Computed example of a mutant assay.
Amino acid sequence: MNPLFGTKASPSAVHAMLLLLRLGVSATMLTHGWPKFMKVTTGNFEFGDPIGIGSAPSLILSMLAEFGCSLLLILGFQTRLATLILMINMLVITVFAHGSDPFGKKEMPLLYLLIYTTLFFIGPGKYSVDGRTSKTWPG
């Protein structure tokens, strides 16, 4: 009998929790990406320019990360590429957009960065398109 607070995780629970983590973080990030997607589709390119490439390119890159890569994460497709792009986006937000702001403004993008970094190194789990197409898929 395993103790309630034991250190051994069951593989099926790990894969289920990776799915839950991917879905949860993507759903919350979509609340940031959807408004940017709507701005782009309506032709409103007013946006900050944190890294000096212009408002329109900054908006499009942020929208692609927060909206497009979140959709990829939901599917678990190209997970490591999607999380890498999202990690870069969170770094830009933390360092450039909120660089001089108090920690409270940086806290949320840092939490997202931590989650994306975890998914980058661990991977999407077997309940994903990537897991389904990998050579290690058990089915």
Rank of each mutant, 00 (worst) to 15 (best):
T136H: 12
V95R: 08
I88M: 10
A82F: 07
T28D: 08
F47C: 07
S55F: 10
P102A: 09
P57Q: 14
R132H: 12
V25G: 00
T28A: 10
T28Y: 08
T133H: 10
G68F: 04
K8Q: 08
T7P: 00
T117L: 06
V92G: 09
F120W: 14
V129C: 09
S26M: 06
A27P: 08
L4A: 04
F47P: 04
G33K: 07
A65E: 05
V92C: 05
F77A: 13
L73G: 00
A56I: 08
F37D: 12
I93P: 01
F96M: 10
P102T: 06
P124Q: 06
L64A: 15
L113P: 00
R80P: 01
T79D: 01
A82E: 02
G76M: 11
S12G: 00
M63R: 01
A65N: 05
Q78F: 14
L59Q: 09
S26C: 00
F77K: 03
S100Y: 02
D49V: 12
G125I: 01
I122H: 11
T94L: 06
M90R: 08
P50M: 13
L111I: 12
S62E: 12
K36P: 02
L30R: 08
H98M: 05
N89Q: 14
T31V: 14
T79G: 01
I85Y: 03
M90Y: 11
D130E: 05
L71R: 02
L113S: 03
S100R: 10
P11F: 00
A16Q: 03
L81V: 14
A16I: 09
H15Y: 03
P109Y: 02
P138W: 04
L21I: 12
V129Q: 07
M17D: 06
G131N: 10
G125C: 06
V25W: 08
I85E: 02
A9I: 05
L18Y: 05
E107T: 04
I88K: 02
C69R: 03
L30G: 09
N2P: 09
R22T: 02
L4G: 04
P50K: 07
F121C: 12
P124V: 12
L75W: 14
G131T: 10
V129K: 04
M63I: 01
F5P: 01
P11L: 00
L4V: 03
I53R: 14
M90V: 07
A13D: 00
F47K: 10
S128N: 11
W34I: 15
A27F: 15
K39Y: 09
I53V: 15
G99A: 06
F45A: 03
S26A: 15
S58D: 10
G43C: 11
T118A: 15
P138F: 05
G104S: 14
F47A: 13
V25D: 04
G139Y: 12
K126L: 12
